[in-house]
């Protein structure tokens, strides 16, 4: 069975390093890459009536923007390196969504970056990398 790497990607420098790491491993092992961009979203948040009305339109815009700015440029460069690549853009809780996709797509490994910035918010709410270490359904590599 060939390796399938799920890579969490948000366009940051660490995300790029994580992706480079995954691409080099996939190339060496003859595996493929699935890049996932998760837009943080909770169905239990509170919106104003105006925001409700525009939500569908905003979502469409956000998806298009993410596809254009983040995903499209990657596809061609990684495909050019000879590694099969797919992309997905999802809404939800970042760590949970990454795990769901890894299970659903039959991934064998996950790779994400961490910013190593132990700020107050990540102390209180936890970080994506920290959560994945605990709940990832497949081996998970965290790239510093």
């Amino acid at each position: 069975m060939s390796e399938k790497f799920v890579v969490g990607y948000d366009g940051s420098d660490v995300a790029k390093r994580a992706l480079d790491f995954a691409v080099s491993r996939a190339k060496a092992q003859g595996g493929s890459i699935l890049i996932v961009h998760v837009l943080e979203w909770s169905p239990y948040s509170f919106l104003t009536p105006q925001e409700l009305e525009e939500r569908h339109a905003r979502r469409t815009e956000e998806l298009e923007r993410a596809e254009k700015a983040l995903m499209s440029p990657l596809k061609s460069t990684i495909a050019a390196a000879g590694v099969p690549v797919e992309t997905q853009i999802k809404y939800g809780h970042v760590a949970k969504t990454l795990c769901d996709i890894a299970k659903k797509e039959g991934a064998t490994q996950m790779v994400i970056g961490r910013d190593g910035d132990g700020g107050l918010s990540s102390r209180v709410f936890g970080s994506v990398a920290g959560s994945l270490v605990q709940v990832a359904p497949v081996p998970c590599t965290i790239v510093p």
Binding site: P43, S45, F46, L47, T48
Partner: peptide, 18 residues
């Protein structure tokens, strides 16, 4: 009963809360 693929759209909870 919400389709996970509809995440990011207005949920029942949000409509009710508003």
């Amino acid at each position: 009963y919400s389709d996970p693929d509809d995440a990011g759209e207005v949920s029942h909870f949000q409509a009710l809360a508003t």
